[in-house]
Write a protein that binds this DNA or RNA. Structure first.
Lengths: 259, 259
DNA sequence: CGGCACGTGTGACGGAAATCACACGAATGT
DNA sequence: ACATTCGTGTGATTTCCGTCACACGTGCCG
């Protein structure tokens, strides 16, 4: 497809992706008011008064985006926030030479573009739809105005920002606080299952990321991730059936980084 | 000094420090109301009404802490936030085996402990005074109550959280988006001078961090940082006079990672 | 004054992981 | 039915940087 001949091939593929998608940007068809959005509002802006909720609805507009669409691009001026109703969004940062890191994968009910919109600085990351998604867009200015008028919502926003911070903090831990590549991957897999079943020795999770994406999340090369997966399987620590990850030996996996 | 014989020597020194300081924790002498704190409040919670400011004063208490004191420790339940009036505070995270990463260095006027206090989760990092400091402590519950009552303050808090997020995001870039160690350090030094003089080819900054600390910020070993500093000096890219860093050849330093 | 802790400088060495270079199957589109 | 792209597996090779091992200066404190 190669729209821009100026870009070198091979490892610069995401830059190409970026430029390709920039040609058919946002502003896709507006489908419905966010009132009909399947996402329950109160998951997000819970405890808001009826009045506040209506105010929010008034300024937000829902749209769908195809897989691969970029909600916004790193460095772009913040236009507003996106509340994801449906599907997953990849938030990543990339350097001039084509490397990139995934900061987090936002799922239904999460908000992207918030820090930039609050601080008024440009978006720091690029948001790409991993699947066809539906999202509510709330333009920056009305949103800020809304927050000023509804203190309860502002507090809720602070909480959400704390969560976003926490995800980024996790990222720092992956990248900075791990000796071996093995340890990074083991930690990552264990964190995936953190939410669910706790103390059992065999855990389950759904892993919808490619090795390449995992590599970008924990700071490894794709090949290393592939090799480590093979290792783990060989050692009977994990099993993979399609997109289902099964940690068959949690204890063994934890032992990996206990020196 | 070695209070705890159970701890192995050498590279586990920060753990030792942690434990030593935990024996003489917080609650040092309360010196003065935050009204007399040298820090101008409006730098932090600007635009707040007189009423709101008084409310803040009512719930905050000022204290001083000696160098090396820990305001809080990673994993501890969040008790509240600290507004630094004076001095610098190192925020770091560490892994079980003694490695540690510095997430940011907070200076006068900044807030630490905010994300944990907002979200109700434990502090994610350890806050250590790099120098004797003076700080206002605001307990969690009254602070949250205050935010609920003063929407303007909540919005301000969201802005501060965005800044904190941004610092952490930078950290991710250092750790994840840099090929060589050389590139990491060059980027770090250039970022130090970002605030000041822009397009000149020779820049100045004050560098009050040890090589060890720099290493912990950008994910290198102390030795590598030392070697790179020597390199840069040899190549006439930088000069160091005491704690003054002079970038003599900004262009050259940037060229380091433009390949 | 000695010690001692700390920050720093540098050499040698080894290993872990990136890189390069393939191959293979499955999905996708034409 | 074909080509093409994408995700994956795996070997061989190389290189960067962490680790270990020292040495030196400086400031501090008993």
């Amino acid at each position: 497809m190669m729209v821009a001949g100026a870009i070198a091939p091979s490892k610069k593929w995401h830059i190409i992706r970026m430029q390709r998608s920039m040609k058919t940007p946002y502003g896709l068809q507006v489908i419905e008011s966010c009132l009909t959005c399947p996402l329950k509002k109160d998951e997000l802006f819970c405890d808001l008064s009826q009045h506040a909720m209506e105010g929010l609805d008034a300024i937000s507009s829902s749209a769908t985006y195809p897989k691969g669409a970029l909600l916004f691009v790193e460095g772009q001026d913040s236009r507003g926030i996106f509340v994801i109703c449906n599907g997953r969004v990849k938030l990543s940062a990339s350097s001039a030479d084509g490397k990139s890191v995934i900061l987090r994968i936002a799922e239904s009910g999460e908000v992207v573009g918030l820090p930039g919109s609050i601080s008024g600085k440009p978006y720091e990351v690029t948001a790409e739809a991993l699947e066809p998604i539906q999202a509510n867009f709330i333009p920056r200015e009305p949103f800020l105005q809304f927050l000023r008028e509804h203190g309860e919502a502002a507090v809720r926003v602070a909480e959400i920002l704390s969560d976003i911070y926490h995800a980024t903090y996790q990222e720092v831990r992956y990248l900075g606080l791990s000796g071996s590549a093995t340890e990074k991957l083991a930690r990552f897999l264990l964190d995936l299952t953190l939410a669910e079943g706790t103390d059992k020795n065999t855990l389950r999770a759904t892993l919808t990321l490619t090795h390449e994406e995992i590599a970008e999340m924990i700071g490894l090369s794709r090949e290393t991730v592939s090799r480590l997966f093979a290792n783990f399987k060989r050692k009977k620590l994990i099993e993979i059936h399609g997109s289902a990850l099964v940690i068959t030996d949690k204890a063994g996996l934890e032992k990996v980084f206990e020196v």
